[in-house]
Simulated assay, not measured.
Amino acid sequence: MSVGFSTAAANTHLDNQGSAYSWIKLHVGDPGAAGTANAAAETTRKQATWGSASGAAKTTSADLVWTNVAGTEDYTHFSMWTASTAGSFGGSGTVTANAVVSADTFTIPAGELDLTLPVAA
């Protein structure tokens, strides 16, 4: 790719993004421009712990665990927020997961939730 961030700028942006928008919410479809569409029945947001960005990528350094999930559904997306409730929407992405049944535990293991930015080549 010939356009994008410098690696240093991408790392700075990702570190700021992960710090500011650390609360993760699950969705069963694209969260949309406001981050509120297709919300999962499981409404609890979990706070992500991120490693430092490197090479224009950043990943979680601890498991995100939802216990006793509220509904039977298939999580396909996540959104990032500034707070455990309310707050400001900062972005979204996709997750690949097996469907869950109500009362299951759902885990996104450390290193499995990633943020990346394109880098100029």
Rank of each mutant, 00 (worst) to 15 (best):
G35Q: 03
R45H: 04
A9T: 13
Y21K: 01
F5S: 06
E42S: 06
R45Q: 04
A41L: 13
T49F: 09
D30P: 00
T44Q: 15
G18A: 06
E42M: 03
A33L: 06
K25G: 07
A8D: 12
A40G: 04
S19P: 09
G18F: 05
N16D: 15
L14R: 04
W23Y: 06
S6R: 15
G32I: 03
V28N: 08
S2F: 14
I24Y: 01
Y21R: 02
A33P: 02
S22W: 09
G32R: 00
L14G: 04
T36G: 03
I24M: 04
Q47L: 09
N38T: 02
A34E: 13
A41G: 14
N16Q: 14
A37L: 07
G32V: 04
T49N: 14
T49S: 13
F5R: 07
F5V: 07
T44S: 13
G51N: 11
W23D: 05
S19R: 13
A39Q: 07
V3K: 14
P31G: 06
A48M: 08
N16W: 10
Q47Y: 07
S19G: 14
A34W: 09
G4C: 08
A8H: 13
A33C: 06
E42L: 05
N38E: 02
G35M: 01
A10Y: 08
F5I: 05
F5H: 08
G18N: 04
A8G: 11
T43N: 10
G51D: 10
A8I: 13
A40P: 01
D15C: 14
T12N: 10
P31V: 03
T43G: 15
K46S: 12
G4W: 05
G35E: 03
T49V: 12
T12Q: 12
W23A: 03
S2A: 12
G35T: 01
G51K: 09
A37Y: 01
T49W: 11
A34R: 14
A41V: 15
V28Y: 09
S22F: 08
T49P: 10
L14N: 00
A8R: 13
A39L: 07
T36Y: 03
L26P: 00
V28P: 06
S2P: 13
P31R: 04
P31D: 02
Q17F: 11
S19D: 11
N11W: 00
A39C: 09
N11K: 05
A37K: 06
A20S: 13
Y21T: 04
G35D: 00
K25V: 08
A41W: 14
H27M: 00
T49H: 13
G35Y: 05
W23P: 01
A41C: 14
G4T: 07
Y21C: 01
W23E: 02
A20W: 10
A41I: 14
Q17C: 11
